[in-house]
Simulated assay, not measured.
Amino acid sequence: MKTPMTAIATALLALGLAGCNDNRPADAEDQIGDTRGEEVGDVGGTLAGAAPAEPAIDGRLPAAGAEATDGRLDVSTEGQSGAYLTDSAGSSLYTLEDDSDGSGCVDACLDAWPPLLVGDVAPSGSERLQAGMVGTIEREDGSSQVTYNGHPLYRYAADTGTGRTAGHGVEDQWGHWYLVTPEGERMEAGAE
């Protein structure tokens, strides 16, 4: 039977040895990323130390930043002159002009504009939204993207945190991007 002092000394010795057993080179943290889960990188919005994404329905991985969510839509007015859609985490949701089936944003576009995907759950909306407008489309990779009033919904990788709307009114190589109103329409680009 160990005495309390022996048990404490054993625990301290084990902790000390655990700290000395780190054989990584000094710059190894730079090689593997910061494991505290803080955002790193560029517009791609990857998270260091994050678990790999779950495979999509057909076994392929979804695009970076396009992990499936709970599919719950909400409404925010933070930072805007009118109400607009957000996901359950408070991220602003956008639509791409003339994109009705998700084919307007593929490949490199998905890094900047991750689609709002759902897994095995049906998407839903808060009481401030019209339930009949919430739906999904099947993307080319077999994943289910949330739609509102037929508009496929995307997040913007440069929006860091809730209430950010940097993607509203953006015109890039894929087209014009807009916030979506609770009425299911694009918010006018000048309404900020």
Rank of each mutant, 00 (worst) to 15 (best):
P62M: 06
E67I: 11
V75G: 01
E67G: 15
V75S: 01
T46D: 02
T46P: 00
L73I: 03
E67A: 15
T46A: 02
A50F: 02
L61E: 03
A50S: 14
D58N: 14
G49S: 03
A48K: 06
I57C: 03
A63R: 06
R72Q: 13
G59S: 08
A63F: 10
G44Y: 09
A48D: 13
T69I: 09
G59Y: 05
A56V: 06
D70R: 12
P62D: 09
T46K: 03
D70E: 14
T77F: 00
E67D: 15
G59A: 05
D74I: 08
A53K: 02
A53I: 05
A64D: 14
L47P: 00
D74W: 09
G45K: 09
T77D: 03
L73G: 04
L47S: 11
P52L: 09
G44L: 09
A66M: 12
A53M: 11
A66D: 12
T69W: 11
E67R: 15
A56N: 15
P55E: 12
G45L: 04
A63S: 14
A53G: 06
L73A: 03
L61S: 05
G44I: 08
A66R: 07
V75Q: 02
G65F: 13
A51G: 00
A66V: 09
L61Q: 06
A64I: 15
S76V: 01
T77L: 02
A51Y: 00
D74G: 14
P52W: 08
G65R: 13
D58G: 10
R60F: 01
R72C: 05
E54S: 13
V75R: 01
A56Q: 09
I57E: 13
T46S: 02
A53H: 00
D58Y: 11
A53L: 14
L73Q: 04
A63N: 11
A50G: 07
T77Y: 00
G65P: 05
L47R: 14
G59T: 04
D58L: 13
T77C: 00
R60E: 09
V75T: 06
G65K: 12
G49I: 01
G59I: 06
L47T: 14
A51W: 00
D74A: 15
G45F: 03
D74N: 14
G65H: 13
A64P: 13
I57H: 06
R72T: 13
L47Y: 11
G44V: 08
D58A: 11
G65V: 08
A50Q: 13
D70A: 13
A48Q: 12
S76I: 00
T69M: 10
A56H: 04
R60G: 10
G71Y: 08
S76H: 03
D70T: 13
G44P: 00
R72P: 00
D74H: 09
A56G: 15
G65A: 14
D58W: 08
L61N: 02
A64F: 09
L61F: 05
P55Q: 11
L73P: 02
G45M: 07
L61C: 00
A50P: 02
P55I: 11
T69L: 12
E67S: 15
G59L: 05
A66L: 09
T77Q: 08
G49L: 01
D70Q: 11
G71F: 07
D74K: 01
A64C: 10
A56T: 12
L61A: 06
G59R: 04
R72G: 01
T46I: 04
G65I: 12
L73M: 04
S76P: 01
